[in-house]
């Protein structure tokens, strides 16, 4: 009798402890699932709405489309000129990304593999850029570019995009290049390679992981950038996707299916990119922001 009671007492608390643990886990995972839904739902709603007719959107704004129609996507491409905006965004984004990676790598090479008097100062000078609020440069950049005739050209976006991304690019690439052992260069010098040879044949290929991260981050930022495009581009044939969306949604504000379809077109490239390079995007964005 005594023995039995003892065993029971011993088991009882561990049982409730087990139950508590399970309940806690269910609650926790339920909460996490709900929170994920909160994060994803707006995007999901955007996508399903772009396949609905305007009437259906107003009658059943939250259910799946009864009839999937591509009409909105086609019209967005034609009426809203999303095709043109897509071409502009691609040109500006690709050109600025290439320029950013090239200039970033070149500068980082000097700052990480050489010692010279102004090195510390230059590093500081470049990092300073992360502290400058972009909006405070809009008016002066507008007047400066107006004077040199850059407004309403692709360069009005490519050059400032690159300039403002350089601090993060240089920071990330310098960190990576500094970790490449010195012996590699010494061996290359023995073989008679010059500095350019070392840069193009050794350092650049070895830095590909850092360069990829910089390229992905730059691509996302340029593709989504809005305020420079808003101020520096007036010519409707040069408008990028975010700018077209903002203007277009004003004009066609009651044709929701159409507006949502236009947004879906703009969002898909970045989501595809995220699906492929998730880890790099997360790490890169955090590394860039912590330093800034």
């Amino acid at each position: 009798m005594m023995e039995q009671k003892l065993v029971l007492e011993k088991q009882a608390p561990s049982m409730t402890f087990q139950i508590k643990k399970v309940v806690f886990r269910v609650l926790k995972n339920g909460f996490l699932a709900l929170f994920s839904l909160l994060m994803i739902y707006p995007l999901y709603w955007l996508m399903i709405s772009s396949f609905k007719s305007n009437e259906e959107f107003f009658q059943h704004p939250y259910s799946l489309p009864k009839e999937w129609t591509f009409d909105n996507i086609v019209r967005a491409w034609q009426i809203a000129d999303m095709g043109r905006a897509m071409v502009n965004s691609t040109i500006v984004t690709v050109a600025a990304t290439l320029l950013t990676v090239f200039l970033g790598a070149l500068t980082a090479y000097a700052l990480s593999r050489f010692t010279f008097r102004l090195k510390g100062f230059l590093m500081m000078f470049f990092l300073l850029g992360m502290l400058i609020p972009i909006h405070s440069t809009l008016v002066p950049l507008f007047t400066l570019m107006n004077e040199v005739g850059l407004l309403n050209t692709y360069w009005a976006l490519i050059l400032p995009y690159t300039a403002f991304e350089l601090p993060i690019a240089i920071f990330l690439i310098v960190a990576y290049m500094s970790s490449i052992p010195k012996e590699i260069e010494e061996a290359a010098v023995m073989d008679g390679s010059g500095y350019w040879g070392i840069f193009f044949r050794m350092i650049l290929p070895l830095s590909v992981p850092a360069l990829t991260t910089v390229a992905i981050l730059a691509f996302l930022r340029y593709w989504n950038e809005f305020v420079f495009a808003l101020v520096f581009i007036n010519d409707s044939s040069l408008k990028t996707l975010p700018l077209s969306l903002a203007i277009f949604s004003d004009g066609f504000s009651t044709d929701y299916g159409l507006t949502m379809a236009a947004m879906t077109i703009a969002v898909i490239p970045t989501i595809v990119m995220y699906a492929f390079f998730q880890e790099q995007i997360m790490k890169g964005m955090v590394a860039g922001s912590v330093k800034g």
């Binding site: 994060m39 994803i40 995007l43 996302l220 989504n224 975010p242 703009a266 970045t270 995007i281």
Partner: peptide, 15 residues
């Protein structure tokens, strides 16, 4: 869950 929470970071701020 982590990817879902990070997702808005790659979406255009205009959207």
């Amino acid at each position: 869950v982590r990817s879902a929470i990070f997702l808005p970071m790659v979406i255009s701020t205009v959207v």
